[in-house]
Design a protein around this nucleic acid. Sequence first.
RNA 1: GGUUCCGUAGCUCAGUUGGAUAGAGCAACAGCCUUCUAAGCUGUGGGUCGCGCGUUCGAAUCGCGCCGGAAUCACCA
Length: 573
Amino acid sequence: MSAETFLALKASEAVQALYGQQADASQIQLGPTNKGFEGDCTIVVFPLLRISRKGPEQTAGEIGAWLQQNCPEVGSFNVVKGFLNICLSGAFWTETLQQISADACFGKLPSTGKTIMVEFSSPNTNKPLHLGHVRNNLLGSSVSDILKAAGNNVIKATLVNDRGVHICKSMYAWQKRFNGATPQSRSQKGDHLVGDCYVEYAKMEKEDPSVLDDVHKMLVDWEQGNPAVRSLWQMMNQWVFDGFEQTYKALGISFDKTYYESQTYLLGKELVQKGLDMGVFVKDPDGSVWCDLTADGLDRKLLLRSDGTSVYITQDIGTAERRFSECNLDSHIYVVGNEQDYHFQVLKLVLKKLGFDWADRIYHLSYGMVELPEGKMKSREGTVVDADDLIEKMYEEAKATSEASGKLDDLGAGEKDALYHSIGLGALKYFILKVDPKKTMLFDPKESIDFNGNTGPFIQYTHARIKSILRKASTKAAIADGIALQAKEIRLVQLLSSYPSKLQEAADKFSPALLANYSYELAKEFNQYYHDTPVLKEQDPAVLSMRLALISQVARILEMAMGLLGIQLPDRM
RNA sequence: GGUUCCGUAGCUCAGUUGGAUAGAGCAACAGCCUUCUAAGCUGUGGGUCGCGCGUUCGAAUCGCGCCGGAAUCACCA
């Protein structure tokens, strides 16, 4: 149990005993004590004044005295205005560390029994992945892992946008201008080749806008199953899939289920018909079907075109229904950029109008765009940061830094390679995930690649330092009863004990950033401790054992928290 | 124009359901490696928390109004 939880309970008892009235949880405000004040935890007593009917100092003093008298865990206390600062006893912290150490499941929350689908990535197959997709992938993957650690059954899903006019554009350009080029013939990743086709098409259309008519004809041919168009489509899509596969592998991303839009784009039509029958949708004279959302403060939304074909949202209605019924979902999270906020608002309302009780259990994890110093990334203007290039660049940077340090010269080539990869990727993943998902973030290619300060490699390095000590130690880690902890050690234990509640919060808010910042705080705290407390030099064997146990727990929690961000912590670097 | 989101140090970002003196990193400057890994540690400077009003014991946090920025409002996806 964390110190906060423990004291909240005890404070509640104190209020009951002293003032004869129950204080509910919201009235017990607890937090770590601010810098400059003595104490491990602080209880803010202002909300309790209504119950005590006394001044803040007096109330705080009374509660403090009661706690000290009735709880052996409370060592001492002091009162500053309405703030009751409490120092817990040494034994409390020793026991807390013992419990964490002994609990093999520490950091994993009990099962909720719920099944959650997380859809993310969902790329178009006409161009390679860029930095924006990287944020999406990392968020989706990390949120999935966090929800899993928080006791949920998680299904990672992606919906590949493999059909439509965009891929036809790439196909058209390939036919006209690429002379049968293949990824093999050009020694190029397939997604990059298809991306080049797409760029080439943009030029063609600029030269002669009438090519768009040919592209539309191609799309119609595709829909009608024209064998030549279909086989070209299949070939080029496969190139892209192979390319994506490599990028996903490099990023450490995988999916439990892959849906293809070419197989789902007809879904949802029956549901639209059902809505018409129910009278919640309307059909216009030209045959198009609409949902009127003006009463909800939105516009009218088209659900079926006048020619009876479906639009983007039609299939989302269909796939959502299918997923909830087939996978027995408790909730469904869509990791999609905030440019689609409106779309998901509409989707939810439409599903509600259709009477689905699970409509309230779909959640749009709306994340902000990644911008460059010159503004938004635009494929047409060539201002995108390519995912593969970026991963490569991070690797090179990690290699250069590692080689300059010369600490790893005894490692084999394969080991070094894997290490550079995990450091480079650690830097990239941390850089992206440490930012609150919903905020727009800036990526400056010149300055964002940094391995010092609040970065992934900083935390990886901290972990490597701990492992190095543990390798050299000849004593066994153990925590003797009654052994005293220093102030900095107490602070570390306090941070460790708060990990489960951090994880819970990250799961509730779908925010890997909370775990990133937690990890940084813990690593920073450890580095300060490391700097002025030599572990291996300790003469007292009991203290030495305790310190080894403490730092191995720090390493363990860092590894867990960073693992949920998809970041590996090497033993050496 | 309507709706939604955002505005914290020169830059990138934290800041708990409202709490004490608003914090980190980068960049700048000054220190610390015969001592467990210097990808580290310590120190200095840097702020009208966009502006104003309100709510209250107390506001970066909540409400209203402005200013500035972004997204969106397609028979595109």
